[in-house]
Design a protein around this nucleic acid. Structure first.
Lengths: 193, 193
DNA sequence: CTCTGTAAACTAACAGTGTTAGTATATTGT
DNA sequence: ACAATATACTAACACTGTTAGTTTACAGAG
């Protein structure tokens, strides 16, 4: 029977590798099992089902995204930090599009672990805008705004929705981020008055 | 054999209905065929394959979204038009989330019909910001920015990503749109100088 | 008004998907 | 050395989209 002592971690790692190379769309348990030299049914000794495996890949993706963002804003403040964060987020989405897609497919409300993961998504953004003089509620709103801009941009760029016009896509993104910083500064002023 | 003379249009209409009621995820050709009282294989007399059917549903979704947006901005100008457009876009995404998802799944580069459809997505936005004093390239960029904000917001709200904080989601959206209008006005000023 | 060709339906089958039940066996702990 | 556990297996089920080949209802032409 030639058992090789696969662990849950091995399977998650192989799933990540396969999603990145073949695309989320072409992922299948049979092919994953084949790459691990086992049969598909044997995967169920390690994982509950496919959704659970996706969720696990999602945790990995979130932690990687968080790491990229925190690394980018380290030592930076205000506008510079926001630009660095947005740049890191954009780079992550472009370089690892399939892994990025997994994050958005997570059902964020399901359990405590997913709630915690949602916190990991929010944290770097809250840190980046932390130097602005804003109250907590403003920060919550503005965090959502920046996340909308970044995610909306990446997912549409990925879908090919931005090829209708010849204008440079990177310039559009810079303008979007600049607009957000403008909003940040504007909110700050209003808060001071 | 009891032929009922189904048309391509009947099938697309039934597909739209089924996607809206059962969700894009639960859509299947077998179930669709069953609802039309035919076998799944018979669908292929009318459509090329499932992708082509999705594309057709996408055309419908885009035209509906365009209609909603144009209706909302009729007679309005500048900030008022932008707010009305954003509101209509948001309402469409919330009221018909499954149909909305289809739009983003379209491979926008594939053929001329899809290129034209991409134009239908862009058009209402370009009209809404048309009253601002901007050159063509600025408009292209700003159109992308607004689209990113609107789509990013809706898709994350739909995915449950905004439930981490208690702050009102509608307020966040209003702030995002206000930020975009700020950017519009700012771009305009710079253009005049 | 019949004849013929088209097109709409069918059945059967294929290759693929995730998943469960039941079974054998290698490894680990006692 | 023996028992328990966990890892692997085979077989099967109920799905999925899709193709090939077949029947037959209907529309248009002679």
């Amino acid at each position: 029977m030639a058992r090789q002592g696969l662990t849950r971690g091995d399977i998650i790692a192989a799933a990540i590798k396969m999603i990145e190379s073949e695309g989320l769309h072409n992922f299948s348990l049979r092919e994953l099992a084949s790459r691990l030299h086992i049969k598909a049914a044997s995967l169920y000794n390690h994982i509950q089902n496919m959704d659970a495996l996706y969720t696990e890949v999602g945790y990995y993706a979130i932690s990687e995204l968080k790491r990229a963002q925190l690394g980018a804003i380290a030592g930076k403040r205000r506008g510079e930090a926001v630009e660095a964060l947005a740049d890191a987020y954009h780079r992550f989405g472009k370089e690892r599009p399939e892994i990025y897609k997994v994050i958005l497919s997570l059902p964020m409300v399901k359990n405590d672990a997913l709630q915690a993961a949602a916190g990991d998504i929010v944290e770097p953004i809250m840190t980046a805008i932390g130097d602005y003089n804003l109250d907590e509620e403003q920060k919550m709103h503005l965090q959502r705004v920046l996340r909308s801009i970044m995610h909306g941009f990446i997912s549409q760029e990925e879908a090919g929705c931005f090829r209708h016009f010849p204008a440079d896509v990177a310039d559009s993104y810079r303008m979007a981020v600049r607009g957000f910083i403008l909003l940040l500064e504007n909110s700050e002023k209003e808060a001071r008055v």
